[in-house]
């Protein structure tokens, strides 16, 4: 059984988010390169979920009544791995094995390799369908717990997501919460230039979802949106407006930052900056 959660404390969650970013950057530094942009943009979502929202037990990762997380944008595994390690699912030292031969931490999420990863992802557009099956399976069997699916906005170009949105709304799977990392960018550039998706809120609302729109780097806004999600009769989609690369200063650039080399100097500079910003903020 999981331990009782403490009352929400934004400062503590911000500290956790900073630790996620720092550990993720160290992992990418050890690997030499990686998916820095999207990993940084979901760090605050992961911090709020794992610190304040999820009903989980790191000592019993397969606990049947747990909340599940499906990171559909599976290339951002490094951020999830940092989070899981900090929560005690495995030794944080393992983070330095990211992408190395024989590692338990592959570039894209693999439930068979990494303790705490609920669903394998990496082929964009498939995670939400899996999440919908988990949510329906829980409901049919009367198993408590919610399913949180994290999708990228670029990923929403995959049509399978829209099949899943229809299915989830039709079945009223309110035990499933969709988080959209709306960092407005995809590998090749800005979403609006490649295949515009806006107005995302209206689209998802038309598909039958209750929409919440938050600053995806504001842990208080995220917490307030997530803590009450699923209480109505429509499933909830939380559109999290984010910045690709946010918090990893060398990746906070207008140019290509989907996948970047990460040098020791980059990592040192970024970690110092994360500490400086955290200090200034709290």
């Amino acid at each position: 059984m999981p331990s009782q959660k403490k009352p929400f404390d934004a400062r503590e969650t911000k500290r956790f988010a900073a630790e996620i970013r720092k550990n993720c950057i160290r992992a990418l530094e050890a690997a030499g390169s990686g998916h820095i942009g999207g990993s940084m943009s979901i760090a605050d979502m992961l911090a709020v979920l794992y610190n304040d929202i999820l009903n989980i037990d790191p000592a019993d990762p397969q606990w049947e009544e747990r909340d599940w997380v499906v990171l559909s944008k599976g290339h951002c595994g490094p951020a999830l791995y940092a989070t899981l390690a900090l929560k005690g699912y495995f030794d944080p030292a393992e983070l330095l094995t990211l992408n190395k031969g024989g590692t338990h931490l592959p570039s894209h999420c693999d439930r068979l390799k990494t303790t705490g990863v609920d669903i394998s992802t990496g082929s964009l557009g498939q995670g939400l369908s899996l999440a919908s099956g988990v949510a329906l399976g829980k409901r049919l069997q009367g198993i408590p717990g919610k399913v949180y699916a994290i999708l990228g906005d670029g990923e929403l170009q995959e049509g399978q997501n829209w099949e899943a949105f229809m299915f989830i709304a039709h079945r009223k799977l309110t035990n499933l919460v969709v988080l959209i990392d709306n960092n407005r960018r995809q590998l090749d550039g800005y979403v609006k230039d490649i295949c515009n998706e806006e107005d995302l809120g209206n689209k998802l609302s038309a598909f039958g979802f209750e929409i919440r729109r938050v600053d995806g780097h504001d842990v208080t806004q995220l917490y307030n949106a997530l803590i009450s999600a699923g209480s109505g009769d429509r499933p909830t989609a939380v559109i999290c407006d984010t910045e690709k690369g946010h918090g990893g200063c060398f990746a906070e650039i207008d140019g290509f930052n989907h996948y970047m080399p990460v040098s020791h100097e980059d990592a040192e500079r970024a970690i110092a900056e994360i500490d400086r910003r955290l200090e200034a903020e709290i």
């Binding site: 919908s132 099956g133 329906l136 399976g137 299915f167």
Partner: peptide, 15 residues
Amino acid sequence: AQAVGMSAGLSATGL
């Protein structure tokens, strides 16, 4: 595609 992915999710819960 949704049906197959959803089926996989169902099976992850033991169905």
